[in-house]
Amino acid sequence: MKSGSNLEKVLTSGQFAVCGEMGPPQSADGKSIKKKAEYFRGYVDSVNLTDNQTAIVRLSSIASAHLLLDAGVEPVMQMTCRDRNRIAIQSDVLGAYALGIKNILAISGDHQKFGNHPQSKNVYDIDSLQLLQILKNMRDEKKFQNGEEMKVEPRLFIGAAANPFADPFEFRVLRLAKKVKAGADFIQTQGVFDVPRFKRWMEMVRDLGLPEKTFILAGIIPVRSVKALQYMKSEVAGMSVPDELIERMSKAAKPQEEGVKIAVELIQQLREIKGVHGVHIMPVMWEQVIPQLVEQAGLLPRPRFEEEQTTPAKEAPAKG
């Protein structure tokens, strides 16, 4: 075990994993995270906490992850390269681990132009690949980016993102291979609506032998309106939404129910694809859907493991 996280246990035990995702509030309302935790507890193996997603200021992913952990749900803390340099990133990684966070997802981050502070400076001291490498070296070599050693290393389960629908298409898989080489233990993909294209991508992924080296979680975005689908098709960079799906949704008498149905079908189709080790469900502002969605997809009950006695973070002596 690299980290002993619940997600790692589920995946290494060969079971089909289910990840959720939650966007922290745009305020200091920590309680809302604990409230939302109810929709996930017992229904998923871990939940991503986004890091100021779309460059909108939100409660920090570290604090959110910690609050979620307190509420009994395992967090995957997202960490972008947009807002912090290597000093801040490594410091936050140490802090997160000391707070009991064991899964981190390294991503480039949306450009600040999309957010609510487009005038801010864009940092990008390192990119997501370099971040993966840094996280891996911190864990496996006990070394900081500069080569200096640390006493207590963060034992993390390291994740990366992949977008099978972005361009240049052929290079996407090679870049994924690079991410795996850099240290990605697991991969979460962009939301899949275009299954044929995803299948083609997975074929290439298998050709490179990547499913043997990393765990791949296919992205699912449940939608409750045709508007949401149309928005994703036209506005979200790197998203492929087939017209049939839009048509089907626009004809639905009860779009919410249809949305759940579509998501269930997508999960079932993705599950059949060789090399897909789990799903990562991103219910943008629709967390309430998680219990019924997971149940209808036949993914319950979620595996349970014996609690470890102590987490390494708690063993570490406090320094005065």
């Binding site: 390269c81 949306d110 132009k113 690949l129 370099q130 993102a161 290079f171 870049r175 960079a237």
Partner: peptide
Amino acid sequence: SKSLLNGPCGGSQNGKCEV
């Protein structure tokens, strides 16, 4: 736009930058 040295990011589409 992100000074990525191991790019491209997930926002690259049809040869254009997400920004």
